[in-house]
Amino acid sequence: MRGATILKASDDKTRQLNKHTLYIQANAQLYSMRNETDLSPTALAHYVRGQLATSLRSRKPYNVNLLLGGVDPITHKPSLFWLDYLAALAPVPYAAHGYAQYYCLSILDKHHHPDMTLVQGIKVLEMCTDELKRRLPIDFKGMIVKAVTKDGIRDIEFNDDKVVKCP
């Protein structure tokens, strides 16, 4: 659409991400088939980190930042990992990538607490997107929200059309 340079940049990035995740997805699926069990989120995160770290020092490195969320199939513990294109991996309670970090992390610092529920989480997420709509110079065209629970991944309805006005 309009604002071509900016929108194109984000378009580019998504493709790259898909390409890389396709490769990861294929490998994770191969693991599941071979071993009749799924990788745990921590195991997968470290595997992806390893791949990214190898790629970093190759001729054509992957240029992608990731957030990895998952629920352990055995302990049912949820976990979130922050991973950047340099392959620095950190387990975190909340995270963001790109410019959003500068706007969202302070909100999350204030409003996140360790034993919050999904509903509360969505509320904080909404605060974040509101802030982005208010302050981010780019129109990011809405959000896709998914929740990972022990029963699987499900899409969450999210109101993208909400108009946020500056106070």
Partner: peptide, 12 residues
């Protein structure tokens, strides 16, 4: 262990 940061499952 290096790849997955977990002990290898016994059967594997």
């Amino acid at each position: 262990l290096l790849t997955y940061n977990e002990d290898i499952p016994c059967e594997q």
